[in-house]
Simulated assay, not measured.
Amino acid sequence: MALLGRVREKLIAVLQFPNPSRSYDASRHCVCFWGYDDSREITFMVDDAMLRNLQPDVGSDERSVLGAFDKLREKVLEIAKKQYVSGPQNRYLIS
């Protein structure tokens, strides 16, 4: 029974976002940010179109997109947590 409990623990992904860093990738039109599952770093990219869906008045320049991300950070992190599945994949696109 204890072994089953440990297996269940491993199946539950514990994704955290202790690093507030983010950057804009102009070539991909997205904001990159990082989450951690234990010691694994997971890269997330949220495209600027998604940010515009959440906040329609977002401009198209880097400063505006990063500002929108900062304003919507908690919402974007919730979306990232729902999308994440523990496993070998270490890059996710939120679009």
Rank of each mutant, 00 (worst) to 15 (best):
A2P: 05
L4G: 05
R6M: 11
R6D: 13
V7T: 05
V7S: 06
E9I: 03
K10N: 07
K10S: 13
K10Y: 13
I12C: 10
V14L: 09
L15H: 01
L15D: 00
N19T: 14
N19Y: 11
N19M: 11
N19K: 09
Y24G: 03
Y24N: 02
D25P: 00
A26R: 05
S27G: 08
H29V: 05
V31S: 01
C32I: 08
W34S: 11
W34L: 08
G35W: 00
D38V: 08
D38E: 15
S39N: 10
R40E: 09
E41R: 15
M45E: 15
M45D: 10
V46R: 02
V46E: 00
V46I: 14
D47A: 00
L54E: 03
L54R: 02
P56L: 07
V58N: 05
G59P: 05
R63G: 08
R63Q: 13
L66D: 02
G67K: 04
G67A: 15
A68R: 01
K71H: 15
L72S: 01
E74P: 03
K75Q: 14
E78W: 02
A80G: 03
A80I: 04
Y84F: 15
G87H: 01
G87R: 04
Y92M: 05
L93V: 11
L93M: 15
I94T: 01
